[in-house]
Amino acid sequence: METLVINVLMVLMAITVWVIVRNRNLFSVIVLGGIYSFFMATVLVAMDAVDVAMTEAAVGAGISTVLLLGALYLCKSEEARPPSKPLIPLLVSLSVGGMLVYGTLGLPEFSDPQAPIHTHVAPRYLNEIKQEVDVPNAVTAVLASYRGYDTLGETTVVFTAGAGVVALLRRRRKGRKP
């Protein structure tokens, strides 16, 4: 049943992407992007990655949608038609996508108990959390202690990107010198 739910959500995500690509109304594209992020967050919940799902919902469906709507307020609501067919970008995108799919063929199967993460990293974290960190929640211990600098870096990147977008979207008052 879980596989069926995930597959249905993936089909809905593919349909959403197709509608986004075909749409010229930027408001609709932003709203559909938020819907896509919601579907992605739901897939992550179904795959038991609730912490990643919460991040996707907050950043993808929440903050990104609000920032893009703010940017749209300063722009036209219709996308301009390209002067020619974008064949080269399409080919580059398809080749990069093909390479990414090819790269995943060497990965272990999903939830394979013999995968390296299940035989080396996860047991170490679960067995030594009490002695090394003394935090009862394993996810919190990994994110805040073992990956603390990585989490700090990710937070810094998101904050800097948000501050940059706010700086770009800020309007100057009339009569004020730059």
Rank of each mutant, 00 (worst) to 15 (best):
G97N: 09
K130D: 08
T156Q: 08
T160Q: 10
G60R: 01
V43R: 05
P178M: 13
V19W: 01
T160L: 12
L44R: 02
Y125W: 06
A61K: 05
P82W: 06
L32F: 11
A57Q: 05
I6W: 02
I129F: 06
N7I: 06
G98Y: 01
G98T: 05
S145K: 11
A163N: 07
T65R: 12
V166A: 04
V66K: 08
V66L: 08
R172P: 12
R22K: 01
G103T: 13
D51Q: 11
S37H: 10
M13L: 11
V66Q: 09
N25F: 00
H120T: 09
A14M: 12
M10I: 02
R173D: 13
L143H: 04
P83K: 15
V166G: 06
Y102T: 04
N137A: 07
A138P: 10
S145G: 13
L94F: 05
N23V: 00
K76Q: 03
V66Y: 07
A161Q: 09
H120D: 10
G148E: 14
D51E: 11
F159R: 04
V21M: 00
F110M: 05
G33Q: 05
Y146K: 12
L107V: 05
S77L: 15
L26S: 01
V11G: 04
E109K: 03
L74D: 03
P86S: 05
I117F: 03
V142F: 14
E56W: 10
V139M: 08
D150M: 09
A138E: 07
R170F: 14
A80P: 04
L44C: 03
R147D: 11
G106Y: 14
Q131L: 15
I63M: 13
R170G: 08
G98M: 12
G103S: 14
S77T: 12
V158G: 10
R173L: 15
K177I: 15
I117Q: 00
T65Q: 10
I117E: 01
R171C: 11
I88K: 00
Y146S: 08
L9K: 04
G97C: 14
R147G: 10
S28I: 02
L68Y: 13
L74C: 06
F38G: 04
Y102Q: 07
V101C: 07
S77K: 14
A122M: 14
G70Y: 10
V59E: 04
S64F: 09
P178N: 13
G162V: 04
V96C: 03
L126E: 07
A46L: 11
A161L: 09
V142R: 09
L4F: 07
A61G: 10
M47N: 00
L26P: 03
L69T: 07
G62Y: 14
N137D: 10
K85L: 01
G34L: 07
D134I: 14
S77Y: 15
A49Y: 03
Y149K: 05
L90M: 03
V19A: 01
N23Q: 06
M1S: 12
D150K: 06
I63L: 15
R170K: 12
